[in-house]
Design a binder for these strands. Sequence first.
DNA 1: GATGAATGAGAGTTCATTCAT
DNA 2: CATGAATGAACTCTCATTCAT
Lengths: 223, 223, 223, 223
Amino acid sequence: MGDTQRQRLEAREEAILAAATSLFGESGVDGARMAEIARRADVAEGTVYLYYKNKHELLEAVVDRFWRELTKGAKAAITADAPLSQQLTELANYHLSSLIDDFKIVEITSRARQRHGEPGRQLPQIREYVRVFDLIMQRGITSGELEAATPVWQMRDVFYGTLEHSARTLVLRNKPFDTRVVDNLLSLFDGYRLKHKPSKQEVGSKDAALELLRRLENEITRW
Amino acid sequence: MGDTQRQRLEAREEAILAAATSLFGESGVDGARMAEIARRADVAEGTVYLYYKNKHELLEAVVDRFWRELTKGAKAAITADAPLSQQLTELANYHLSSLIDDFKIVEITSRARQRHGEPGRQLPQIREYVRVFDLIMQRGITSGELEAATPVWQMRDVFYGTLEHSARTLVLRNKPFDTRVVDNLLSLFDGYRLKHKPSKQEVGSKDAALELLRRLENEITRW
Amino acid sequence: MGDTQRQRLEAREEAILAAATSLFGESGVDGARMAEIARRADVAEGTVYLYYKNKHELLEAVVDRFWRELTKGAKAAITADAPLSQQLTELANYHLSSLIDDFKIVEITSRARQRHGEPGRQLPQIREYVRVFDLIMQRGITSGELEAATPVWQMRDVFYGTLEHSARTLVLRNKPFDTRVVDNLLSLFDGYRLKHKPSKQEVGSKDAALELLRRLENEITRW
Amino acid sequence: MGDTQRQRLEAREEAILAAATSLFGESGVDGARMAEIARRADVAEGTVYLYYKNKHELLEAVVDRFWRELTKGAKAAITADAPLSQQLTELANYHLSSLIDDFKIVEITSRARQRHGEPGRQLPQIREYVRVFDLIMQRGITSGELEAATPVWQMRDVFYGTLEHSARTLVLRNKPFDTRVVDNLLSLFDGYRLKHKPSKQEVGSKDAALELLRRLENEITRW
DNA sequence: GATGAATGAGAGTTCATTCAT
DNA sequence: CATGAATGAACTCTCATTCAT
């Protein structure tokens, strides 16, 4: 029974978090009414305050959970023993699609950083998420797939920042997930890769141009 | 006398905008009180409403002005006839340092996108700013300093996104402007640079295709 | 316990209505402050809004209640099986004295008709009250005490309108309830009554005049 | 030039009054904005205050003018030397149709009575208008067409009140002017009319009393 | 623990009125 | 006289939070 009791509590907390997440996403932090969150979680208004001291703590919990889940998902999306390029692709795909899907929560995150009017703090759960990126980069260096000259954080900033900005661009233009963003980023990342074989890549540059031309023609019609 | 009158009006509008900008930055949109903005602008509360219909329109004006000024500054920062790498450096430095300095306004920008309960709109002034980046990239392609294979918007996403994310990282870690971020980004951009000027031999029947390619890219850039 | 709860809610609603009624009467609709109404009802300002969405709905409730109570009182004031003339007298007395007592609420009624910027609506509760008058007239016709030639609504307009206007006249002159108004109206209503016996009424017309003279002398001192 | 000047001033005052009248009628006293009144009168906001100290004085002027014009119109509508019944008909028609047409201004009149929060004052211009009714009644008595037994003010209350209430009923039901209202009222007024001219026989020692009676009536009429 | 009625501080906004030009 | 930008007091209403049940 103690278990059942605890489970009910957790289910309730989860319901509140889910309700808050969805409403924050829909209406923004200030647009979301505590009363509406309670209604969606199917609890009384006062009940929310049994779980979270106030609206801001609820927001922090929402954001915290979001990034924790995101971290979990990122780790799950990566094939641990695959070659670097595959791992990067997997992570890029996951990152870009997630940011697109939960764009609103990402935007709201900055609100959770503000405690009282102080300058922004770094949220630990976000650092945890970023660490996933760093980890992959580090692995690449260790395995010799990435050059060691560029610091991890710099490569990560490019990787993370490009995809984040692309996500915002896509969302604001009502565009869906776009593979080319990932493709481009990965091919750029070749610049960080140790080059053993300059070989075939340089061959047929004009054919590549023609091929690209064809692709572009298709793209234009889609834009 | 008409001039004096107009000047006073403009000075007042400017004072209100400045007051709002600083307070929004310090306290966030919702933390900023209209009364305090009026006080800082040294006008009566009601006066603010002569210039801006409501708080949200004031916010929009603040954000609008910020990005317009940013665009102006970016254009001024670039040496028009310098080689690409210098222009990129100048733009990157300007972008990174500006985002660091006005981090709060950048964060607040998302609030200005929300009109009522609609999904986010793209703000024209931001597009204008982004266009500066696109312009540089396009110039690079046209001058043959950048390869034409990668669409402008993709290179720009890397450039813009990396610096933006780096700015956030720096700010949240209380770090100042860091040259290495720019250096790294530029050296990465070498990946996009043509390693050798196209020789005459490569010119031929496929040049038309390349030309078309370039034209198409332009169209894409303009959406 | 549920009963106690419900009773408390109703008591509160009643307190708010009473407070609003008195303050609207004293200060007019726009002169009445919601804060003062709350204070008089001994509740917090916000509490008023739990019961009424806004000031206008509160006004509507006040007016609605007033006319409903008035209707109830009118019905109670009439002796159901008395002869017509008595019923008319009772109703006239009730109507006149009520309108005098609650003159302000009657005046305010027109404000409750305005919803937004629409033309005035008829208020159902007033129609209900007017229906009491129609009912009496109708009864008189049915019982043969009133002639059927004149439509009920015309007789009612005379009855209702005369008394209402008299009430306003009296109030604005700071005069109290005046029996002569009712007497006069009722004697006029003889014009609507079926005349079986022209008999004694015509006798002693000059004596009546003398009698009236004496009465009038008294009245003049009173005016 | 002085004349032109004065004329311009009067035209302006008139424009302001007209603008205020129409807007008060459309939007009610509190719904009417001084700025909008100024706009309609084609003057600057501040100009209104050169002619009227504040909004309430403007309201008083509007109401005052309305009833003065109404009085003028009523006098013009009556054929001075026609028989009583015709004069009554003319007055009734005029009264009813005017109240219907300017229902809003009539309703607003009560607002003009309130000075500061004091109880209502009688407005002199309304008294003047009512006096027109009294005058007709008095004429009827003097000419022997109306019986002297009923005080003038009582007959007038019936006459005035019935029509006023009918006007409100018609307006609120979106009905137009209805002749039957006037017809009914006039036929009812036959109850007040002498059925036969007083014969000489009835004249005697009691005539002095009757005469006094008539005199007293007059005094009462003037309050 | 759960409820939801009650709270009341505080916000944005309006608009009659003023006064420098 | 006329203007209309500026004023600022005062309003209604909201909603996060509390607490008696």
